[in-house]
Amino acid sequence: MSEKAIVCKDLTKRFGDFFAVNHISFDVDQGEIFGFLGANGAGKTTAMRMLCGLSYPTSGEASVAGYNVFKQQEDIKRNIGYMSQKFSLYESLTVRENIRFYGGVYGLSDKQLKEKGDELITKLGMEKEAKMMVGSLPLGWKQKLAFSVAIIHQPRIVFLDEPTGGVDPVTRRQFWDLIYDAADSGITVFVTTHYMDEAEYCNRISVMVDGRIDALDTPANLKQQFEAASMNEVFYALARTAKRSAD
């Protein structure tokens, strides 16, 4: 097993003669916060789905948490957490029931569920809301809860697909505190986002353009490389080269 959380080499996904993901290669270290940027339609979601074991790559190699994406999808699934851009807890279940359900799906024991559940609720300050239907919580709380639930089984890597869409800046900041906590506890965070301020919070960033990775470095290095004052400018400089139109 490698030290790296994710290793990708020439990973490709082709639909007919359309290269959704075109020979991308990158590594992500254990415990790193890795920003996966790109305009809509650049191929981020397709790449992420391959890494999560949801679809088979057309060619190339990749391993996630040390497991092969072609052969060991089941092992990968056991070692990752996932949170999508859509809010994905059950609205008609209470906070605690959601925790118990997702924890249960990952095979946590009753005792672990109780402990983890209590710990999580205390950490989020949701003691009063534990028995409320998730549907009645404000969006920011839901997103924080969804993230906490996604890492309840202490995965090696958590994939976050635009986790903060539609959330106000203050809550986004709080959300990133949770991400830092997770990274501190050794969980690798693989995050896609459209907010460039969030990109600055990442250890390293890759920018996808037309299915390729056109830039990959720390935010500081990228800004230097593109002689830009902010990540926004870096992103525009790269996105302008795109030939594909957004979906």
């Binding site: 074991g53 949801l54 699934k77 996932y82 949170m83 999508s84 851009q85 859509k86 994905s88 994939f159």
Partner: peptide, 12 residues
């Protein structure tokens, strides 16, 4: 709701 995706990424 998007919960199906979460279920599919899970070992279930």
């Amino acid at each position: 709701m998007g919960t199906m995706e979460i279920l599919l990424v899970s070992p279930f």
